[in-house]
Amino acid sequence: MTASRGAVLHTLCILVLMSQLGSCTEVAPSGVPSSTADYTDPWSDNSETVDYSDFVQQCQKEDVRSFRRTFLPAVYTLVCLLGLLGNGLVVLTYLYYKRLRTMTDVYLLNLALADLLFLLTLPFWAVSVVRQWLFGRAMCKAVHGLYRLSFISGMLLLMCISIDRYFSIVRAASAHRLRSRAVYCSKLVSVGVWLFSAVFSVPELIYSDEQTVEDTVRCRMNQDNTTFIYTTSLQLSFGFLLPLLVMTFCYCVVVRTLLLARNFEKNKAIKVIIAVVLVFLLFQLPYNSVLLIDTIADVNATVTDCALSKRMTMALDISKSLAYVRCCLNPFLYAFIGVKFRNDLLKLLKELGCVSSEKLLKLATMRPTASGVRTTVVTDTDSTTTYSP
């Protein structure tokens, strides 16, 4: 009797275990597969194929890096060589002749110095793109800080030049009365621009550092979202919007004044002003627009498509390179068009043996005027020109 009871209990236990195992293989009422359906035996030859379509994959940008290694060093080298030549001649001419008689002269000298400092950072970036950052942590911070210092000071000095031209042409009487103090004031303003730009570059010194990405050392900014938004907003405000608004106002009033003036050079002056504004917009607007879009996308993490991310990176590189070209054009737009400056430059080139005496005499004493008659240029005022920017 006891044996039969034991056999019955044994049979019942087996039935209970079989029912429990059967319930584990059923599908839940909600339609969610049971645990055995999701499990794949690693030792089984009949394992199911895992679908990775829903997994987030890293965006591979090897084609973008290949483009940067080819495009950026070529542009940086060309900009650096041309910019060093043009701005170097401006600095050399002003320092050799000690010709700082007007506010424009002071601003042009400081603008050339700012452009030269900016151009000196380009070789470091070119080498970094081709290989990696090879210059250490201290140079990483120094190059970042120097880049920001020169970039912001250059943009603010362009704004100061437009203000100076506004007072020289629109407020000519007041400017003439204050002429004795103008150069001193311009030197104080230039010092203020450099100090403000130095303060503006402090975040670059703090947050720039070496980072290892895929076994490659890079010099980058290491910021959180709040700091990133703050620094980018300052750059867009003081490095583009403020100079653009001031330049637009000043040059619009200057053009209106020139249209009412009776001077044969007014058409040339208006063309120069239009060229200055157009060059500023052409070379600065694309970069700042792309920078704003890229900043918004990074903060909000709205760009999730790999192809779109690649296009954004390439657009930022191309527009930034375009903005750098402005350093090459500044000497031609602001310094070389001045008659007195051209004469000083030609004399300097003669003393250096680059221009013969006959060529110098031909270039310095003869030029076509609006009436087709050739006249001398030594009768111009001490300023760059009265009407020509």
Rank of each mutant, 00 (worst) to 15 (best):
M103E: 14
W133N: 07
T369V: 01
S66E: 13
A301N: 15
T365K: 11
A182N: 01
N222M: 11
F200Q: 11
K359E: 06
C327S: 13
A182C: 08
V246I: 08
K98P: 02
S356I: 04
T36G: 01
Y387I: 01
P389R: 09
K350T: 14
S383F: 15
V16F: 10
V255H: 06
N343S: 14
Y166C: 01
S174G: 04
V32Y: 11
L15V: 08
Q235G: 14
A269S: 10
A7L: 09
L82T: 07
I206C: 02
R256C: 07
N46D: 08
D305I: 12
S128W: 00
F196A: 02
T25M: 07
P368H: 12
R177W: 03
I296A: 15
V143T: 04
I163E: 09
N300R: 10
L116C: 09
S289G: 04
K61S: 14
R101W: 02
K266Y: 05
V8Y: 06
T25V: 13
P73T: 00
A3K: 11
E214V: 00
R311E: 02
T2F: 11
A173I: 01
K187G: 08
T93E: 03
A142H: 03
R326A: 02
W133L: 11
D298M: 12
Y334S: 07
T226R: 07
L111A: 11
L178D: 06
I152F: 11
G145N: 11
Y39I: 00
P286L: 10
D105F: 12
T375D: 12
L308P: 10
A28H: 09
L322Y: 05
F283K: 03
T104H: 03
S388W: 11
N330G: 04
V339R: 15
L259T: 07
K271P: 02
L281E: 09
G338F: 15
Y52L: 06
Y97P: 03
V279F: 07
C59H: 02
N110A: 05
L360W: 05
L21C: 13
L322K: 02
F228L: 14
V50T: 08
F240A: 13
D54K: 15
V199H: 00
A261W: 13
L291I: 01
S150Q: 09
D298R: 11
H144N: 04
T302A: 03
S356V: 02
G86F: 06
Y76H: 14
Q58I: 11
L122E: 03
V64M: 08
S47Q: 05
G338L: 13
T227M: 15
F196E: 07
V254R: 12
V246R: 00
L333Q: 04
D298V: 04
G145Y: 12
L21E: 15
D209G: 00
L89I: 05
D63M: 03
V217I: 13
L363V: 08
L205C: 04
T216H: 03
V199N: 06
Y96P: 00
L72A: 14
D115E: 05
R5P: 08
A370C: 06
L361K: 12
T11Q: 10
L15W: 12
I152R: 08
L111D: 08
C250Q: 10
T49G: 04
T379A: 09
V325Y: 07
V50K: 02
C160H: 06
Q57D: 03
V143L: 03
A315R: 03
L84A: 12
